[in-house]
Simulated scan of single mutants.
Amino acid sequence: MRFERFEEVARRAWEDIPPAYREGIDGLVVSREAVPHPELPDIWTLGMCDTESYPSEWVGPDTTRSVVILYWGSFRNLARLDPEFDWEAEIHETVEHEVRHHLEWLAGHDDLGDVDYAMDESFKRNEGRPWDPWFYQHGERVAPGMYAVEDQAFVELEFTPDAFESAREIVFEWRGSRWAFARPETLGDVHFVRVEGLPDAPPLVEVVLVRRVGWWERVKGALRGRATEVLESDVSNPSRRP
C-alpha cells in the first residue's frame, strides 16, 4: 500500500473512534519511518501512543496529553514478510490499540503494556531465546488460574511435590468441563504442557504446572541465584471427566 493510501485509511480509522475516546489525544501522526523492535528480529513497531503527563493532583485529559503515531515503513516491512498481510485491518487495529493505551494512562494503569510484554516474551520463547517463564501471567486474566495472551490460553495449576507425585493424572477445567491427561514424570518449577485436541480451542492451549513453594524458599532461591527449572511437553486428546 502506497503512503498516500495508507494515510487515507489511517485518517478514516482515526475518525471512526468515538470523540469521547479521543479526548486528551492531540491527533494522529502518520510517519514514513520504519521502527524495528529494539531486541527482536523481524518485529516492527507499527504504532505508538506518545503520552506526556503534566503535574497535577488530577489525572484527566487536561493533564495527560497524547499523540498517536503510525509508522508506514513498519507496516510495509511487515507486509513483505507476510503475503497475507491485511493492511486495512492492521491499520484499524493499531489505531484502536494506541487509543486504548491513552485511555489506560488516564485510568492509571497499563494493561496493554503487560500484554505487549507477554507477547514479546512468547516470541522470544518461540525463537529459542531466553524468556520469562511467568510471561503468561502478564496476559488477560479471564478466570481464576486462566490467562489469555492474544490467541494463546494458559491454565495454571499449582502442586506441592508430594501432591504431584501422588497424582496419577492432571485434571483441569476447559469450557465448563473437566479434562485429564497422564501426569508427566517431572514437575520442575514451571512445566508447560501443550494440550491438543480440546474443543473450541485457540491455536495454543497450555496447562502450566507450577511447583508451590513458600515465600522463604523463594527468597532463598533468589539470593542463591538458583535458576528456575522450566520444562515443556505435549499431550494429545485429553479425556473428558464427569
Rank of each mutant, 00 (worst) to 15 (best):
M1W: 11
M1P: 10
R2W: 03
F3V: 12
E7K: 15
V9G: 03
A10R: 00
A13W: 00
W14R: 03
I17A: 05
P19G: 03
Y21W: 05
R22M: 08
E23L: 06
I25R: 00
D26I: 09
D26Q: 07
G27W: 06
L28K: 02
V29R: 03
S31C: 04
A34T: 10
P36L: 14
P38T: 14
E39F: 14
L40C: 12
L40W: 01
P41H: 11
W44G: 02
W44K: 09
T45L: 13
L46P: 00
G47D: 07
G47N: 09
M48E: 13
E52C: 15
E57R: 06
V59G: 10
V59Q: 08
V59M: 10
G60I: 10
T63A: 14
S66T: 11
V67G: 06
V67Y: 12
I69Q: 01
W72R: 02
G73M: 13
R80W: 09
D82M: 10
D82P: 06
W87Y: 14
W87C: 03
E88M: 10
A89N: 08
E90P: 00
I91N: 02
H92Y: 15
E93C: 08
T94F: 06
T94I: 12
T94C: 13
E96R: 14
E98R: 02
V99R: 01
H102L: 06
G108Q: 04
H109I: 11
L112G: 03
G113I: 05
V115K: 03
D116Q: 04
Y117C: 04
A118L: 04
E121A: 09
S122A: 15
F123M: 07
F123T: 07
E127W: 05
E127Q: 11
P130G: 14
W131Q: 07
F135S: 00
F135K: 01
H138G: 01
G139I: 03
V142R: 04
P144T: 11
M146Q: 13
Y147Q: 09
A148Q: 11
V149Y: 00
D151M: 12
D151I: 08
Q152W: 10
E156R: 02
T160Y: 08
A163G: 13
E165H: 13
S166L: 14
R168D: 15
R168F: 11
E169G: 07
E173A: 12
R175V: 15
R175Y: 05
S177L: 09
F181T: 01
A182D: 14
R183E: 10
L187E: 04
L187P: 01
G188V: 09
G188N: 10
D189H: 01
D189P: 00
D189C: 01
V190L: 13
V190G: 03
V190N: 02
H191G: 01
F192V: 10
E196A: 12
L198E: 05
L198M: 07
L198S: 09
L198N: 08
D200F: 12
P202M: 15
E206R: 14
V208N: 00
V210Q: 04
R211Y: 02
R211D: 04
V213Y: 02
W215K: 04
R224G: 13
G225E: 14
R226T: 07
L231N: 05
S233D: 15
P238H: 06
R240S: 11
P242A: 15
P242V: 08
